[in-house]
Amino acid sequence: MTVAVSLRAVSRHFGAVKALDAVDLDIEAGEFFAMLGPSGSGKTTCLRLIAGFEQPTSGHIEIFGERVEGVPPYRRSVNTVFQDYALFPHMNVIENVAYSLMLRKVPKAERLKTAEAALDLVQLGGYGARRPGQLSGGQRQRVALARAIVNKPKVLLLDEPLGALDLKLRESMQEELKSLQKRLGITFVFVTHDQGEALSMADRVAVFSDGRIRQVGTPEDIYQRPDTPFVADFVGSSNVLPPDLVERLAGVRRFASLRPEAIRLGGEARLTGTVVARSYLGPVTRLAIEAVGLKLHAIVPSGADLPGEGDTIGLGFDSVALHLMGTEP
């Protein structure tokens, strides 16, 4: 196993603000890695440190075994797809894509051929003569992608790559990015605040909050076995049960996560609560329930006999569904 990017005790402080605080992270070569977190959690700073747009206040960063502190972005074997795409408005599409080749003094014919091949790869063959302003959001995104992979970087960084696209386009781009990564074999590191996107695309996910990494693991790990109440709540809006309740239910004084879909309405009731809101989501219905002073969510199959607002109901769940976490909030 080769480590593509490695961060050791990396901090980035802006004055008193600790955007990133003593972070350790290893990203493996060939991996599709997601950095997930709310805005201001430090995920974008982390990406910018790898790209070289920011310098760490302390700590070390290695890219394929090479220390890169003090190495400018233009000497790093890393390329970036920007959130706003950052296409050069005064160049047409092919010039944008061929920019890094032009800087490397690749002969014109060859660089046009290579750039055209990269455009083909993102299904934009024949769009070379257009200006970025004449393209749709999705097309610009593909141009930004082609421009970033044309020089075959060892690591491709993507900053909220799908953030500006509408839902349908986003779903098809997710699949496309995934297959592109498989074909190129490049390490992809992408930043997102959308947990669904992170879980569906990434091989592994790091969850950021307040400048620290709260958990690193496979999507399944993160979703099923969150380490902290923050991760449980942020990734998939799990119900976080406080230690005194968990002590009553399971006999240990720790936080626990209970997934909304693990809650049953029939059978043996372990908690009693009142329905305060009901939202119909198609095949399933989400209930907001007030129980033991908490607001819990349950996702149950839609049906005719569901309780309405104001009804008092019993809640059941299997003991294994109660995932125990630490004692820290």
Binding site: G52, F53, P72, Y74, T80, F82, D84, A86, L103, R104
Partner: peptide
């Protein structure tokens, strides 16, 4: 936009380029 300058550097251009 500041990201144009960053994009250029990211793609291999130094300050002068």
């Amino acid at each position: 936009s500041a990201s144009l300058v960053e994009a250029s550097m990211d793609l291999g251009a130094d300050g002068f380029q």
